[in-house]
Simulated scan of single mutants.
Amino acid sequence: MKKEIITLDEFQKEFEELIKRYVPRRRRDKLISKYESLINTLAIEGEKVLVQPYFEKLKGIGDVNLYALRLEKKNPKRTM
C-alpha cells in the first residue's frame, strides 16, 4: 500500500513566517531549502529515507507511524 505525505496549504506560509521571525537572516534560505529538499526526497524515495537523522519516529501515539522532520540532525544520545 502506497503511503501519502499530507500537508496543509497554510503550513508553507506559517513555516516561512516562523523562519523570518526566529532565524537569523543568513540561515533562512538554507533552512527553507533544506525543508523542501527533505520533503521532495521523502516523496520520491518513500519510507526508506525515514532512517536519516532528519527524521524521528514519535513515541506514545499508539499504532500510528508518525514522524517528525527536523531541519537539523538530531543529537546523538549522550552517555554519562
Rank of each mutant, 00 (worst) to 15 (best):
M1F: 11
M1D: 13
K2H: 12
K3C: 06
K3Y: 08
E4L: 08
I5C: 03
I5F: 05
I5K: 05
I5L: 09
I5T: 05
I6M: 09
I6Y: 10
I6N: 07
I6S: 07
I6G: 04
T7N: 09
T7M: 11
T7Q: 13
T7F: 09
L8Y: 13
L8S: 13
D9R: 06
D9N: 08
D9Y: 07
D9A: 07
E10G: 08
Q12A: 11
Q12M: 12
Q12W: 10
K13D: 09
E14A: 10
E14Y: 09
E14P: 00
F15K: 02
F15W: 03
F15N: 00
E16W: 04
E16V: 06
E17N: 04
L18H: 14
L18R: 14
L18W: 10
I19H: 01
I19P: 01
I19F: 02
I19T: 03
K20H: 09
K20G: 05
K20F: 06
R21K: 15
R21P: 03
Y22W: 11
Y22T: 07
V23Y: 03
V23P: 02
P24A: 07
R25Y: 10
R25E: 11
R26I: 12
R26Y: 13
R26C: 09
R26D: 14
R27E: 15
R28S: 00
L31G: 01
I32K: 00
I32R: 01
I32Q: 01
S33G: 11
S33M: 12
S33I: 06
K34F: 00
K34I: 03
Y35V: 03
Y35M: 03
E36V: 03
E36Y: 07
E36R: 12
L38A: 04
I39R: 04
N40S: 15
T41S: 15
T41K: 15
L42Y: 04
A43G: 10
I44T: 15
I44A: 15
I44D: 15
E45A: 09
E45M: 10
G46C: 05
G46P: 02
E47L: 08
E47D: 14
K48V: 05
V51D: 03
V51Q: 05
V51R: 01
Q52C: 08
Q52A: 12
P53Q: 08
Y54I: 00
F55D: 01
F55C: 01
F55I: 02
E56R: 12
K57E: 05
K57H: 07
K57N: 07
L58M: 14
L58D: 10
L58T: 12
K59G: 10
G60Q: 10
G60I: 06
G60V: 06
I61M: 13
G62I: 01
G62E: 02
G62A: 03
D63M: 09
D63Q: 13
V64H: 06
V64E: 06
V64I: 15
V64F: 10
N65Q: 10
L66S: 10
Y67R: 02
A68D: 07
A68P: 04
A68R: 15
A68H: 12
A68Q: 11
A68S: 14
L69Q: 01
L69E: 02
R70L: 05
L71T: 00
L71K: 03
L71D: 03
E72G: 06
E72A: 11
K73E: 15
K73T: 11
K73A: 14
K74F: 07
K74T: 08
K74I: 07
K74D: 04
N75I: 12
K77A: 12
R78Y: 09
R78N: 10
T79P: 08
M80A: 13
M80T: 12
